[in-house]
Amino acid sequence: MPDLHPASTVHATITERGGMLLDVRGRGRWYALTGSGALWWRHLAKGATADEAADAVAAHFGSDPERVRADMRNLARELQDRRLLHVYSRGRWHR
């Protein structure tokens, strides 16, 4: 999974039970994340890679890491489609 980071326009409130995301682009949109996704988002926001975050979620719940990684890949696609997550790209100079 590519490295991902939350969009700068997204403000998140994360609890152990879930999370709320407010995307202030345009007219503003609210999203709700269930518990495992919210925990994954929290790790991502702290700088973990997508897979590291998924592994942390798996450890928290005592779940199969491969299953959690697959689930988080699906979630990442949804979040990227809504422009709430971006692929992290290291800056390069082009001539």
Partner: peptide, 18 residues
């Protein structure tokens, strides 16, 4: 406030816009 069991994450877009 019992260990939680894992469930796949879900994302909901709320039907509110101030």
């Amino acid at each position: 406030s019992t260990p939680e069991t894992y469930s796949a994450p879900q994302l909901f877009e709320l039907d509110v816009v101030k």
